[in-house]
């Protein structure tokens, strides 16, 4: 039995060696596929992180604009927009800050 096996192995050793080579080439293909998959996952993860960061920045910017009452260029919005210092926008006599001869728009500009 053992002798027959050894005989068969020695007779077919060339084929078995080629089979071994094919197996190692298969492992190389598997490895390359695995690496490509890992790289693709990494790229997708980076894209997702960048999108989340962008959305976060956008949200922060929007809430900052809402707080300061400015438009996207930093200019003041309509007078009724919320502002850090609402008393400046109040009509003369109702608010605390008002100087004679200074227009409301001018005061806003100073602010």
């Amino acid at each position: 039995m053992m002798h027959t096996l050894v005989r068969w192995l020695s007779d077919n050793f060339g084929k078995l060696a080629v089979l071994t080579l094919a197996t190692s080439l298969g492992s190389l293909v598997f490895s390359l596929v695995h690496v490509m998959k890992a790289l693709r996952q990494r790229v997708q993860k980076s894209v997702r992180e960048a999108a989340a960061h962008s959305a976060e920045l956008k949200h922060a910017l929007t809430s900052e604009r809402d707080q300061s009452g400015t438009d996207e260029w930093g200019k003041q919005n309509a007078p009724d927009a919320p502002t850090k210092y609402p008393e400046v926008l109040a009509p003369a006599g109702q608010g605390q800050v008002s100087s004679p001869g200074q227009s409301q728009l001018g005061r806003i500009g100073c602010n």
Binding site: T20, T23, S24
Partner: peptide, 8 residues
């Protein structure tokens, strides 16, 4: 075969 396997 060994070298290919090692590389992979």
């Amino acid at each position: 075969s060994g070298a290919i396997f090692s590389f992979a």
